[in-house]
Design a protein around this nucleic acid. Structure first.
Ligand SMILES: [Mn+2]
Ligand SMILES: [Mn+2]
Ligand SMILES: [Mn+2]
Ligand SMILES: [Mn+2]
Lengths: 217, 217
DNA sequence: CAAGATTTTTAGAAATGTCTAAAAAATTAT
DNA sequence: ATAATTTTTTAGACATTTCTAAAAATCTTG
């Protein structure tokens, strides 16, 4: 599989995460920052290789083979991100881009040895689960901060948006994985959320609250 | 610079190591396992980018820019090899192929952090020097085992051939970097060399002796 | 349901990197 | 110094990946 094919497979995987149906040509083009016509070409090729189901005008979805392949790329991506943060002291907003390249390195043995060296981490620096070597992903119960109720208390276990900009903003707010947050009040006017973080009252915008995952209890 | 361009730059660098002159089109093709016509095409492109001096029918050599670029790729290659052996417990015959991919990962910051994580190693697992971040390479005095004289004693500090086959053969002989070898006798008939290794007499073929570097004294 | 709008595909082209076969230049040998 | 040989370049082709523009299909809406 070429680098380009792998990136398309990953894009379809991420677009399929939420809803089960087919992913539209335009949605893939947007995700890949390419054009619909390029997607059509690629879908024909990936269908030929049996990694996607594709019918004209009906979008695409991954086959079992495609899903397994996607999980392997994501496993590599997240293990490398973990390595960059834990061993090389990168911050969580710097690693995505580099992992985007490292995820395409081909050796199976490399990734198993890396996994062992890192002591078999379960989640990446953004709280996302690392698939095991068979492609199985452990789902963790989590809710968006924006949907937590008053007086609920939770631990930050992930982010929905893992762009550099958002992650650096969280750094500035003092929010990182593992922090305890208590919901004090939800403001109906602008859907902002007043929280208790490290014993201090802080107001979080609706957009921010909608991109932080909490584990409740 | 593309992956392909980087591999050509590296090939010219390695071919230029010994003699200073221009490298022939055919020599590059042989090194790259490609065809002379492909090399001609690529040399035109690399000359356009000012990394090689190239004149029709006269071969190519790296410009200063090209040399500096080559040193950077080789730095990455050798740091990754060191990482694979020292941190991930690969054996020295397994790492070249993987480093061949890793050397193309683009982040400058990554390689500086990797260097620090590895505690600034000076040589790779095959005894080859790791260029510093400015591309400077420290030359180490060394001779081929085949050119050592009777009764000379030396430390194995490198190999000329670092193919898997040769390295695995050295493993079998019990020869690794750091081992002390004493030359007992050179057999004129087949140029084989009788050595003392770990207190035992061993005979080394001319070919083998011609691919092991020693530091004398 | 019939425009009208949107999405998707096709057609055609460009850039990259590679190859084979043939031509041209350089080198070696007679 | 010619001829034979080897090296190198050119010409033309193919596979990938991508794009723009235009056509076709599907969806939306009055
Ligand atoms: Mn990628
Ligand atoms: Mn991540
Ligand atoms: Mn390479
Ligand atoms: Mn090496």
């Amino acid at each position: 599989m070429t680098l380009s094919e792998e990136d398309y497979i990953k894009a379809i995987y991420h677009l399929s995460k939420d809803d089960k149906g087919n992913v539209s040509t335009n949605a893939i083009a947007a995700q890949m920052d390419s054009k619909a016509s390029s997607v059509t070409d690629m879908m024909k090729k990936l269908a030929e290789k049996d990694v996607v189901h594709y019918k004209k005008y009906q979008g695409a979805r991954l086959t079992d083979k495609g899903k397994s392949y996607a999980a392997k790329i994501i496993r590599k991506h997240r293990l490398w991100e973990f390595f960059l943060v834990e061993k090389l002291n990168f911050s969580w907003d710097e690693v995505h881009e580099i992992a985007e390249e490292l995820e395409h390195i081909k050796s199976e043995k490399l990734i198993e040895k890396l996994d062992a060296f890192l002591d078999f981490p379960r989640t990446d620096p953004h709280g996302d689960p690392i698939p095991d070597k068979h492609g199985n992903i452990t789902k963790v119960e989590k809710i968006l901060l924006s949907s937590a109720k008053n007086n609920e208390k939770g631990i930050v276990i992930g982010v929905k948006d893992s762009s550099s900009d958002f992650l650096r903003y969280l750094d500035k707010l003092g929010i990182s994985l593992g922090k305890e947050i208590t919901i004090l009040h939800k403001e109906p006017f602008d859907n902002s959320v007043m929280i208790n973080l490290d014993g201090e009252k802080t107001s979080i915008s609706a957009l921010t609250a909608n991109n932080i995952y909490l584990k409740i209890n």
